[in-house]
């Protein structure tokens, strides 16, 4: 019963994920694309929960769906949802080249997966209930991965300063 339920949830979340992913790149109006991305992020959070990554699922909703997408929607409301023709990027040669490249990438990944599936991907490791808990992740962040933690904070600081710099209009420039 439990296994079946997990499969059902997995199918629903994966279908929502892929469906909204296609929707993001297909809509003409960027506002709908952004809303589809929010759906994508939420379904990804469900997938993370199924992979025993509960802190990351909550962080995904908090950071990505809750803050980054709000930023996006702000800018979209400010700029007005100017619709462009969806699949009109570049000359036809470029378009076909892009599709070929994406398909090639996909085929390559699927081949690698197929090769690895039989041998290496069959038995996931046994994990305790504390796997993916905030305590365990926090411990790693301040011991093994302290450098990454500190550098991320500096990156965020630089981004905040950059955002302010990009946002201020200098007095001499007539923008309106």
């Amino acid at each position: 019963m439990a296994g079946f339920l997990v499969w059902v949830i997995w199918f629903a979340a994966a279908a929502a994920c892929l469906g909204t992913g296609v929707a993001v790149v297909s809509f003409a109006n960027p506002f709908y694309s952004a809303l589809s991305l929010i759906g994508n992020l939420a379904s990804l959070a469900v997938l993370y929960l199924l992979l025993s990554a509960e802190f990351l699922a909550a962080a995904q909703v908090l950071v990505y769906a809750g803050s980054v997408m709000v930023m996006f929607l702000f800018v979209l409301a400010y700029l007005g949802g100017r619709a462009d023709a969806p699949w009109a990027g570049g000359p036809p040669l470029l378009r076909t080249a892009a599709i070929v490249a994406a398909v090639a990438l996909l085929v390559e990944i699927v081949v690698v997966l197929g090769l690895a599936w039989g041998d290496n991907l069959s038995d996931p490791a046994e994990v305790t209930g504390a796997f993916g808990s905030p305590a365990a992740i926090g411990e790693l962040l301040v011991t093994d991965h302290l450098l990454a933690f500190e550098i991320t904070s500096i990156v965020l600081l630089v981004a905040a300063v950059g955002g302010v710099v990009l946002g201020t209009t200098r007095e001499k420039e007539a923008t309106e």
């Binding site: 929010i38 802190f55 909703v61």
Partner: peptide, 21 residues
Amino acid sequence: DLDIALVLVFAIGSLGAYGFI
């Protein structure tokens, strides 16, 4: 009863902004 209850509260709360947008 969740391990991450507090983060969940803030996460869902931040989704509340979408109702207004």
